[in-house]
Write a protein that binds this DNA or RNA. Structure first.
Length: 571
RNA sequence: CGGGAUGUGGCCUAGUGGCUAAGGCGCCUGCUUUGGGAGCAGGAGAUCGCCGGUUCGAAUCCGGCCAUCCCGACCA
């Protein structure tokens, strides 16, 4: 490829909104462009990287028996109604009508569409297992986009869906996907943490996330460096250390006036008490029901844990109107003096702590010295709080730490949630109907690119791992000599599609800078100085070393070096 | 959702009530230049985000809208 023909060229500066280092480098190099909030274009250079990643993933998926398929981005709303996930229309999913007035949605994921595709060709247990995957657009109406490709609205995902005749067959397959994912990220030069994660709106029972630690990440993972325990912040469990316990003889409950204390910070300040002496009550909505979650105010509610306790996958925070409609007073909500307005779930630590401060369900009043079991009761008590960052590991007692990370992939054991909801049925060997067990497996392609650049760059530019670099070599010549230019062009031809030949009439400095920015593994320079003895200069972006190589052997030399890097990476 | 900020040639910025909106980068033309984002000369490119208001006069003041970025958040 001649650089003079490649679109686009590098930029020295980037638009104002382009902030994080990785985003800047990708933008300056010409790998990505921004079309609007959370919407990205991939110019040819970016597509080349994307294709490398696809090839790596495709090889691993095919090795698992996966078959590539493709489902449409636009879905009829009916399939989402059948799976029961049409509530996403309110939040994540965009809906619109076609010219006949029928409701369509932009798919946020493709369980529904894949189940429908499979339905048309699967009738017997003999057709199982089936593993389909695709590289497809998703659109999610993100409330907050961030850091370029790290959190965008439209993005490309590799998503795979497996169908099994039994739970044990799914359980047998699942770890194979797990290991394939680890290989994929290793080949991409990423150190990832595989963490236990919530199921969110996917449903199912168990999921793992693959996260790349990064300061620009948007997720938090709690890890134990001693035994390797790792879990998403929402589901992590820890042993609370002793400073967290708070007990004492129950005192008599009293009502006090607390005007204006409609949040925990003000209440703590007013009463001159630590947050651990206060109870925090948050209200969620599930279906038409209100769920009241009580935790101690020095903790946060984990929506994931709460959802598990009450057995639902549809939880969202209740709106203030929903509270007032049922006679609850925002800012002073509590489980005291309720008349069945809400389902009450109390966190175990809050239940075990005596003499806490609770709201009074009227404006400007709280109760002090409230004791669970004596002054109020709950529909359920359980672990619904996020793990305290200072907690100790449940498994080994080691210290837990919270890390920021980019979530690159997620694998779910869905079970029969979708096959049952959508009536995907096959006959077993006795002629009885069975619902196939499903798994679903995603990788965010844009995030993968962002994470790779975040992990592999220096002040001058990107340093692509050889497995994903858009080109293997960058070739340039110095001087006006036609012989030198011909030699450079000859080498470029020899490398074929793997060479980026900089034939522009730019100064030497510009070409050097652009090479460093683009992150191509090797640079070959042909000049009068080297041409006289039939050699070229070979520069390794990775270690900064330069060597003289004969023109005739440069290609095999580079390929050997690339191979060396590849095998070193996969170890 | 909440808070903060910003919108001026393709990009970055200056201009905060008064003459023809200024500069840098990039782009185009010519000459020169080839081992670290070159030099000289010339040139093109802007309804100052949009709508309305105040004023003799608005990029500048006021109001509304739109767009973008940053921070925070299931913490009532």
């Amino acid at each position: 490829m001649r650089y003079s023909r490649l679109f686009p060229k590098t930029l020295r500066a980037v638009p104002k909104g382009v902030t994080s280092p990785g985003y800047r480098l990708l933008y300056r190099g010409g790998f990505i462009r921004n079309l609007g909030r959370g919407l990205f274009s991939f110019p040819p250079l970016g597509v080349r990287v994307l294709h490398r990643l696809e090839a790596i993933i495709r090889a691993e998926m095919n090795a698992l028996g996966g078959q590539e398929a493709l489902a449409p981005v636009v879905n009829p709303i009916e399939i989402w109604q059948r799976s029961g996930r049409h509530h996403l229309v309110d939040s994540d999913m965009v809906t619109f009508k076609d010219r006949l007035g029928r409701d369509l949605v932009l798919a946020t994921t493709h369980e529904e569409a894949m189940v429908e595709m499979v339905r048309t060709g699967m009738h017997s247990y003999r057709d199982l297992p089936v593993f389909l995957y695709q590289f497809q657009e998703k659109y999610r109406n993100e409330e907050r986009t961030r850091n370029g490709l790290i959190r965008s609205r439209e993005f490309i995902m590799k998503d795979g869906y497996s169908f099994h005749r039994s739970f044990s067959d799914l359980n047998n397959f699942f770890p194979k996907v797990f290991r394939a994912y680890q290989r994929i990220f290793a080949v991409c030069g990423l150190d990832v943490i595989a963490a236990e994660a919530g199921v969110g709106y996917m449903g199912g029972e168990k999921s793992f996330e693959f996260l790349a630690p990064s300061s620009v990440g948007d997720d938090y993972v709690i890890v134990c460096d001693k035994c390797g325990y790792a879990a998403n912040r929402e589901v992590a469990v820890g042993v609370n250390n002793t400073r967290l316990t708070r007990s004492g003889r129950p005192r008599e409950m009293k009502k006090i006036h607390t005007p204006g204390c409609d949040n925990m910070a003000r209440l703590a300040e007013r009463l001159e008490l630590p947050r651990s002496a206060l109870a925090k009550t948050m209200v969620f909505s599930s279906g038409g029901d209100l769920i009241m979650a009580v935790v101690r105010a020095d903790f946060d509610v984990s929506v994931e844990k709460l959802a598990r306790v009450i057995g639902t996958s549809m939880l969202r925070r209740a709106r203030p109107e929903e509270l007032t409609e049922r006679g609850l007073c925002p800012g002073f909500v509590s489980p005291l003096n309720l008349n069945g307005e809400a389902v009450v779930v109390v966190d175990r630590l809050a239940a075990d702590t005596s003499n806490l401060v609770y709201g009074a369900n009227v404006d400007g009043a709280h109760y002090v010295d409230v004791n669970f079991g004596r002054d109020f009761d709950a529909d359920a008590v359980g672990d619904i709080a996020r793990a305290d960052p200072d907690a100790e590991c449940v498994h080994c007692g080691g210290p837990l730490v919270e890390r920021r990370a980019i979530e690159l992939g997620n694998i779910f054991r869905l079970g029969t949630v979708y096959s049952e909801a959508m009536e995907l049925v096959v006959n077993d060997e006795h002629g009885r109907p069975i619902y196939p067990y499903m798994g679903s497996y995603g990788i965010g392609m844009g995030r993968l690119i962002a994470a790779i650049v975040d992990a592999h760059h220096d002040d001058d530019g990107i340093i692509w791992p050889v497995s994903v670099a858009p080109f293997h070599v960058y070739i340039m010549s110095i001087g006006k000599s036609f012989a030198v230019k011909d030699a450079a062009e000859g080498i470029a031809l020899d490398f074929g599609d793997e060479a980026l030949y900089d034939d522009r009439h730019e100064s030497i400095g510009t070409k050097f800078k652009d090479f460093l920015l683009l992150g191509i593994p090797f640079r070959i320079i042909v000049s009068v100085a080297t041409a006289s003895d039939g050699t070229v200069e070979l520069f390794d972006r990775r270690n900064g070393e330069t060597e003289k190589v004969s023109v005739g052997s440069v290609r095999s030399h580079v390929e050997a070096r690339l191979e060396g890097y590849r095998s070193w990476r996969s170890n």
